[in-house]
Design a protein around this nucleic acid. Sequence first.
DNA 1: GACTGGCACTCGCTAGAGTCGAGTGCCAGG
DNA 2: CCTGGCACTCGACTCTAGCGAGTGCCAGTC
Lengths: 340, 340
Amino acid sequence: MGLDDRKLAVLRAIVEDYVATQEPVGSKMLVERHQLGVSPATVRNDMAVLEEEGYIRQPHTSAGRVPTDRGYRLFVDRLSRVKPLTPAERRAIERFLVGAVDLDDVVHRTVRLLAQLTRQVAVVQYPSLARSSVRHLELVPISTTRLMLVMIADTGRVEQRLVELPGPIPPDDVIDLRQLVNEKLVGTRLADTPPLVQALVDEVSGELRPAMITLSTVLLETLVERHEERIALAGTANLTRGGLLDFQGSLRPILEALEEEVVLLKLIGEVEPSAMRVRIGDENEIDNLRATSVVSTGYGPGVTILGGLGVVGPTRMDYPSTIATVRAVARYVGDLLAQN
Amino acid sequence: MGLDDRKLAVLRAIVEDYVATQEPVGSKMLVERHQLGVSPATVRNDMAVLEEEGYIRQPHTSAGRVPTDRGYRLFVDRLSRVKPLTPAERRAIERFLVGAVDLDDVVHRTVRLLAQLTRQVAVVQYPSLARSSVRHLELVPISTTRLMLVMIADTGRVEQRLVELPGPIPPDDVIDLRQLVNEKLVGTRLADTPPLVQALVDEVSGELRPAMITLSTVLLETLVERHEERIALAGTANLTRGGLLDFQGSLRPILEALEEEVVLLKLIGEVEPSAMRVRIGDENEIDNLRATSVVSTGYGPGVTILGGLGVVGPTRMDYPSTIATVRAVARYVGDLLAQN
DNA sequence: GACTGGCACTCGCTAGAGTCGAGTGCCAGG
DNA sequence: CCTGGCACTCGACTCTAGCGAGTGCCAGTC
């Protein structure tokens, strides 16, 4: 259990070299490239201990060492400082995000930016509906028995649903309905709407009631309960970097996982903006992603959290830079959304 | 140039076998598996001619033959009948698309369905805005100097834009503006709006005018001119079938191309619903996709075209089934959208 | 003239043998 | 506790040989 400073330094050196070269690293190379101040033989002894403790392993008997998931974990937790971004990167972030006209636009730019900077697969969740407040509800008659319900959230998200009414409804009633729901619901967070919606239904009587009931059903079921999360993805081509050395040759399971919204949400959801979450290899709950690492965080103005974002890459990734980039982008996006 | 019936039959057999086995096909196998009624030697002579004409080629001197892009082209044009769908497939289509509540929902289900049925990468364009008509325009005040413009199209698409007004505007004026734009624009196709919008600006005078001018700018610039197309993608994991034999080992360029919206639009845009478009290998304008084939068509109710959809796969694909599936899905989607 | 059987030839693929060398573990000595 | 030295391991690479699918060509037959 005792890992003295030098052993930790050796582990750090192994991780850094392996990340850089993508090749198992041996004792000789290690002393050459890092000023460890000891001989290869000593390093070998340290390596033997590190291997026994499960931090590194040998791909085959007479090859160099490679970090294990556990080794990366130790590296991330104790051996690395988050690298400050280069000015060029800062500028790239600003340049990329300035000029976004639209929530869609912001999200798309963000996800591409993140993919480009980290050179990995980027995932960005749209601001969660549950955490948004209602800014406005609009009802547009499509036919006498159909309404289009449009909800505009304070985060800029706009959702629409078709409402099939139980019977025809005159235009004036639509206006009344619109006014009623807006009065009651504007300004409240979507997660808090259910009791209000219920109250709304109870209040209404007469002709409007049946329409209000279906309307409330649509509201609750499709906007609140089954919380309709949206996600943007970019940079899948980056999976092919490292020419199939990572991911033991099969991108398939990873690409499959990345197409499942549910999976993605699990990946990047539910982290406070200040906290970074790093899941390394086996630590991932999703089997298809056991060969990858996921770096994610939440974003939002201040400490409130609107959604998550992150990247997926090989376990052999440059954690310090990746973490720095993900954090920086999350902050920028959070601030950007705060301005609206 | 003279390709008699038997030579064509040989070509067809080669394509079919190669598509099925993914291995170069030799003369002996060919006579065994297909009732050609002639000896391997004869087939070899035919093959020599086919090769001379550029329809097939040998990967290396002593291997079987493989169809060239030109060979596939001839096969598609003259040697294949579109396979009718199996009842199971028909059922799958219906089951998949019934119950879609939303345009987003329809598009997502469609693209997944298409990917699943063809086992390839599927691409679906949202109904083109340019070809949609305005169903309703909504203006929601965000602050005194900001409006959210929400446009609902008859195809179910909903687009929103933030409008930064030159100065504060009272709520009543917003209502007036809303009424004005709706009166003039509802029912017209987006492509036809520019003169109407212009007329609208000219008509308005007084306090409303500056607001109307910026509003019209947003309308024209972001909704009409830069026609905001959206696209859904699914099944990228299918690129890994055939274990890197297709695409000469590198998915990279393909994944890259598939992330470019512009590229995708080029791929599947602008084909009448009845016409199928098949681009084989080199026929693709996009360099990154020279190793793939693209089968696409338009969809829409009747002969009107709302958008495009299609699949991207290896040149070595089962064209008859793929074409049949793409066509069938396009029809279903077209009809489905007609109902709204 | 078209088709066929026969035959020599090509050449990628696989298996086995041999070599190389990076890297290791261990040990005795400082 | 560290170090230099040494024997050992074993994957990667090279080379060779043999196999066999597949071809092109030619002479013979219908």
